[in-house]
Design a protein around this nucleic acid. Sequence first.
DNA 1: TTAATACATTTAAATGTTTCGATGTGTTAT
DNA 2: ATAACACATCGAAACATTTAAATGTATTAA
Lengths: 96, 96
Amino acid sequence: MIMALNWKQVEKISKALGDSNRLKILQHISKKGGCGQCSEIQDVIDLTQPSISHHIKILVEAGLIEAEKEGRHHKYNLNEQLVKEYTNAVNALKSS
Amino acid sequence: MIMALNWKQVEKISKALGDSNRLKILQHISKKGGCGQCSEIQDVIDLTQPSISHHIKILVEAGLIEAEKEGRHHKYNLNEQLVKEYTNAVNALKSS
DNA sequence: TTAATACATTTAAATGTTTCGATGTGTTAT
DNA sequence: ATAACACATCGAAACATTTAAATGTATTAA
């Protein structure tokens, strides 16, 4: 089996997943069927706008979500392919 | 088996996976067929003994590895069940 | 018993992360 | 054009993590 992600990427994605607020953001985006907006995330999570912006940046840089600009709003989609590759890479620890 | 992980556990495991040295330790334990010793990990990873001890503690506390004392040596096993539950939980983001 | 080995713990320094207030940039509405 | 909205960035404080030197504990060997 060809490993799509290298360990540096696994580290980065794990770091991105290692924060409760970011996990909440991911769950929110996931529930919304892969979409969401910063402004509505502020209603769900008890953080200021700059903090949410920071966490979203980390998720985007890890590749877990993708931003789509629509006028002055931003929509976010979960990168399901990356989630799959990440869990594959972690699971590969079991049989390498 | 039935036990699914809660998000607090997912956070903790992700944090444990979010460090290159800990990923190397896990790979080493994994390669050795689920076993290894601190002293041989020191040959593979460029860290002092207290640092390795610290990282192993974090992996144990996350539940990713289990320690087995054998005299003055310690053997470590990958908790394959937990790895499975972790990847299941992360993958669940795709369809919740 | 004494010495050596394997690992844990404590302490402290360096470094990284999280968070928010202030402010900046681009977009839409009036 | 002006105001309001959505989001990004900067700067700084608070907090957490990483690392190693020093030291401690338990086990085995001589």
